[in-house]
Simulated scan of single mutants.
Amino acid sequence: MSTMNCDKCVMAGAAVASKHRSTLLARKRTGKKGLHFSMVREDQIKTRWTESEAVAIKSTADAMASNPAVETNVAAIRGFLAMFAEAPEVLVHVHNELKAAGLPVPEWLPLPQ
């Protein structure tokens, strides 16, 4: 996976970036309590939520007759789509990474313009 460096990309998802991204990144620990990303495989990554965030997510899922994992994934996909609308070059980057890895494009991922 390559790293994308551009000033405009930092603004993608600006509402999240400005208020929450740093906090969420600081909380991202995986595996055993406190085990950092560099120490685990990607398929072991878990999201850590505060108690109030977890209750908000569960309450939303209950209202949607769904479950927290599904609703978190839906929210993530919607967030990615909003980010791609703000920064189309990020979408191009994602498509290039999928192609380089020989992976199919997820059905929800739009084609770059």
Rank of each mutant, 00 (worst) to 15 (best):
A54T: 00
L98R: 03
L81T: 04
A15L: 14
G13V: 02
S38R: 14
Q44L: 06
A85Q: 14
N73M: 15
C6T: 15
K58I: 01
V16G: 06
V94S: 07
V55E: 14
C6L: 01
R29A: 05
L35D: 09
R29W: 01
R29D: 02
E89P: 00
K32L: 08
T47K: 12
V55A: 15
R29N: 04
M39K: 15
R27D: 05
A26E: 15
V92M: 07
A14F: 13
G79T: 01
M1F: 09
A14Q: 13
P112Y: 14
A82H: 14
S18Q: 14
R27V: 00
F80Q: 03
I45F: 02
M83W: 02
D43S: 08
P88E: 13
S52G: 07
K58F: 00
I77L: 07
F84S: 12
V70N: 07
M11K: 14
A65W: 03
M11P: 00
D43Y: 02
S59Q: 10
A17W: 10
K46N: 12
V105Y: 08
E97S: 06
R48C: 06
P88Q: 11
L25R: 03
T47F: 03
P112Q: 14
E71I: 09
K46Q: 13
L111N: 09
R78T: 08
V10P: 01
R29K: 12
F37C: 11
F80K: 00
L98V: 00
E42M: 07
S18G: 04
P104H: 05
A100P: 02
V74M: 05
A82V: 08
M1G: 04
D43W: 02
K99S: 02
A69Y: 00
A100L: 10
S66Q: 04
A100I: 05
L91E: 06
S52L: 08
L109S: 08
T47Q: 00
V70T: 11
T23F: 11
V55R: 15
A76S: 12
A69S: 08
M11Y: 13
R27T: 09
M39N: 13
T60K: 15
A56V: 01
S22M: 11
G34L: 08
T50W: 00
S2G: 03
F84E: 07
A76Q: 07
V16Q: 09
V16A: 11
P110H: 03
N5V: 13
R29C: 01
V92I: 12
P68E: 12
